[in-house]
Design a protein around this nucleic acid. Structure first.
Lengths: 243, 243
DNA sequence: GAGGTATAGTGGCTCAGCCACTGGGTCACT
DNA sequence: AGTGACCCAGTGGCTGAGCCACTATACCTC
């Protein structure tokens, strides 16, 4: 975990703290699905806060689908695996510095397949405008591929352009949720971008397949790229944890 | 919109109402990204509620990522397209009875591709246990394929089993978010299940490909199935809107 | 038994108010 | 000019006490 001069000091609000605790109780299974939470009055007393503050925490937890609150009855823990939405992913991520890489692996795998789907659609729908966007980002990346920071930024530009090119906003939102789930060290996340030439070559392959309208090739190239990116991130994460 | 005896009378809470109004203002663009909301005191007065109630609404809206609230500053509308998560989808869905089918088409398309990814992974990881689950659901569906209600239920069982078989929880959550986005008439949603024999045949193809460990075939069969399902749902939705 | 009717416990919502944070301004000092 | 200390108006954070609305249940009446 980086603690450079740029990182702001931690200042958690009361509500955030309560949300965190309750969320952990539920995710870790100490509060099982179907079970009722203690009453708001009880919980408020237990945490030493007002009902108003506690209520805000419950409202947030309900919004992501961890509990369901009913007037006159109480709050019941929901079955996360059954009904949880993608925004839950950020709550399920293991804490920083954890050695649990299973979750990270799943996230990266999902990212890989979703990326493939986006590329296939982009190849199907390719328009002059979107191809130009991709080409522009790519050319700039090829120029600046020796600067890892810029490589990372421009790769992001390229991937976002690909998302627009696929002509389906839904994938945009899905990608955001999945991406939000890996809260990684910057160095870990940046691992693939140290090799700018490789990134540029991969994206070039993708861009050409999309330009040719070759769905299968575009999908395969994108999956291969994200797959290898995932490998490198995972390797870096493991290396970081060993320190 | 069905208003049968089963549908409970509408009883919206104050907070729900506020969330709905603010959410529409933002999604429809009357409150632009980067713009600040009026202060909580102002908004509370405007809606004729207490700050506590208004605050609950703001907390929920912030949780899904539509706004960002900062102490001493205020609430700023976020750029949904840029940063929004998948749980936003349920807020973006056009109101019931709308003739805007573009969004529905995108949702169904995403569902189709995600289903394909799940099937490919299921074929890659096939285990005896999961194959047995699929087979059981399928056999029961084949027995009861003349009952649309049962066909629908068992298709859901099969698809969920496929989700477990893919060995990646992330897709589970993504699927839930995407599915939550289409709030359709029951009749519309049930359209594909009127043809139980067709459904059974499709799922049988999928099951066999998964059992063979043939990733490409499993993915293709599943995409084809969801694609056709989407077509039928869309056709039904259009027919329903013309009434 | 069937159908009312109290009642205890729950969440929904209000009211009034103080505290903490932010950003922008003023002003004295360098 | 630039810098830092300070003030202050406006904003969200949080409190405490309280009443109302809803739900389930146990009991009572017929």
């Amino acid at each position: 975990m980086s603690t450079g001069p740029g990182s702001p000091i931690r200042r958690t609000s009361l509500v955030d703290e309560i949300v965190g605790r309750l969320q952990r109780e539920i995710v870790d299974g100490r509060l099982a699905p179907g079970q009722a939470l203690p009453s708001e009055r009880e919980l408020a007393e237990k945490y030493g806060v007002t009902r108003a503050s506690l209520k805000q925490a419950l409202v947030r937890i309900e919004e992501v689908g961890l509990i369901r609150t009913r007037h006159g009855v109480g709050s019941i823990v929901q079955d996360v695996q059954q009904d949880g939405g993608a925004d839950l992913l950020k709550y399920l991520a293991p804490p920083d510095g954890s050695r649990d890489f299973l979750f990270l692996r799943e996230i990266l795998e999902a990212r890989c397949f979703i990326g493939g789907a986006i590329a296939r659609l982009a190849a199907r729908r390719r328009t002059r405008k979107h191809l130009a966007e991709l080409e522009q980002a790519l050319q700039e990346l090829e120029r600046r591929r020796d600067d890892p920071k810029e490589t990372q930024r421009l790769e992001n530009v390229f991937v976002r352009a690909l998302g627009r090119a696929c002509g389906n906003k839904v994938f945009n939102f899905v990608t955001n949720s999945v991406s939000a789930a890996y809260k990684l060290d910057l160095a870990t996340y940046a691992a693939p971008f140290r090799d700018g030439a490789w990134v540029a070559a991969q994206l070039r392959t993708i861009q050409e397949a999309v330009g040719d309208g070759d769905e299968a090739a575009a999908g395969a190239a994108t999956e291969a790229y994200f797959d290898e990116c995932g490998r490198r991130v995972l390797a870096q994460a493991r290396a970081g944890a060993r320190r």
